[in-house]
Every structure is written in C-alpha cells, then in structure tokens.
Simulated scan of single mutants.
Amino acid sequence: MAPTNSANGKGTYEVRIGLWASPEQAMDIQERLARALCPEPGHDGPCEVPWSIAVVPPEAVDQGEDRYDELVQQARIEGAY
C-alpha cells in the first residue's frame, strides 16, 4: 500500500484477482470489472474514486513476476496448464 494521506486517511490499495482464462475471457472480465467500477464511462470529469485496471500477460505469470504460484499449480493439477 502507498503512504496514507494523514489529512483524510485515504491511501492506495491494490485488489488482485487471479484467474485462468483465454485472452478473450480475460478482456471480457476486464471490461465487466471496469463497468462495475464506473457504470457511466462517458461521464464528465474523473470518477469519484480513482481507479485503474490491468491484465497481466501469461508470460509474467510464467516468469514469476506476480503472486499467482498457487493458481498456476492448480491449473497444472487440473491439466489446464
């Protein structure tokens, strides 16, 4: 977490969602999450609560640049890897 603003007690939090998906499924889920965070994408000005979203490519997972070792292990066990 980034430093907390002492004036308002707010800080930056990261929420991670690990899933095993095709590129198309990942982009669909990314779009759905974006609409949940901002149901009116054409609104004026920034969102009330600033946010961002990203999809980590499989290469990053394969190289261990994330914290999804358990997800990869489960996919291997299920034969999906």
Rank of each mutant, 00 (worst) to 15 (best):
H43Y: 04
I29F: 13
I53S: 09
T12F: 06
E70L: 06
I29S: 07
E48M: 06
A36N: 08
G45Q: 08
R32G: 14
D69Q: 15
R16N: 12
N5M: 01
A60I: 06
R16H: 07
Q63A: 15
G79M: 07
L37W: 04
A34I: 11
Q63F: 11
P39M: 05
L19M: 14
Q25K: 06
Q74E: 08
M27H: 05
E40N: 11
L33R: 08
D66K: 02
C38R: 15
D66E: 11
E24S: 03
T4S: 05
G64M: 11
L71S: 03
A60L: 10
N5Y: 01
Y13E: 00
D69H: 14
D66F: 03
V72R: 14
G18H: 08
M27C: 01
V55A: 00
G11V: 02
A80N: 12
L19H: 07
E14K: 00
N8E: 10
Q73A: 13
P23Q: 00
G45F: 09
I17M: 09
K10H: 03
A75P: 04
A26I: 01
Y13W: 00
R76H: 12
E48N: 01
L71C: 01
G64N: 10
I53E: 04
N8P: 03
T4W: 01
D44Y: 05
N8Q: 10
Q30C: 08
L37T: 03
I77Y: 07
V55L: 02
Q30Y: 06
W51H: 14
V55G: 00
R35T: 15
E65I: 02
G64Y: 10
G64I: 08
D62P: 02
P46N: 13
P58V: 05
C47A: 13
P3Y: 11
R35I: 14
D28M: 09
A80D: 12
P50L: 10
E31T: 13
Q74R: 13
E31R: 14
R67W: 10
C47H: 12
P3N: 12
E48H: 04
I77N: 08
P50Q: 11
V72M: 11
E78N: 10
A21P: 02
A7I: 06
N5Q: 02
A54R: 15
L37C: 03
W20Y: 05
E31V: 08
A80R: 15
A54P: 03
H43F: 07
P57C: 04
V61C: 06
D69V: 14
C38E: 15
E70P: 00
A80C: 12
R76I: 08
I17F: 10
S52G: 13
R76W: 09
T4E: 07
A26D: 02
D28P: 04
N8W: 11
L71W: 02
N5E: 03
H43L: 08
P3H: 13
W20E: 00
V56N: 09
A34N: 15
H43C: 09
Y81R: 11
S22D: 02
P39R: 02
V15S: 00
I29Y: 12
G11W: 07
E24D: 09
C47M: 11
I53M: 07
C38N: 15
P39C: 04
A60N: 10
A36G: 13
H43P: 06
V49D: 01
M27L: 06
E78I: 09
L37S: 01
D66R: 06
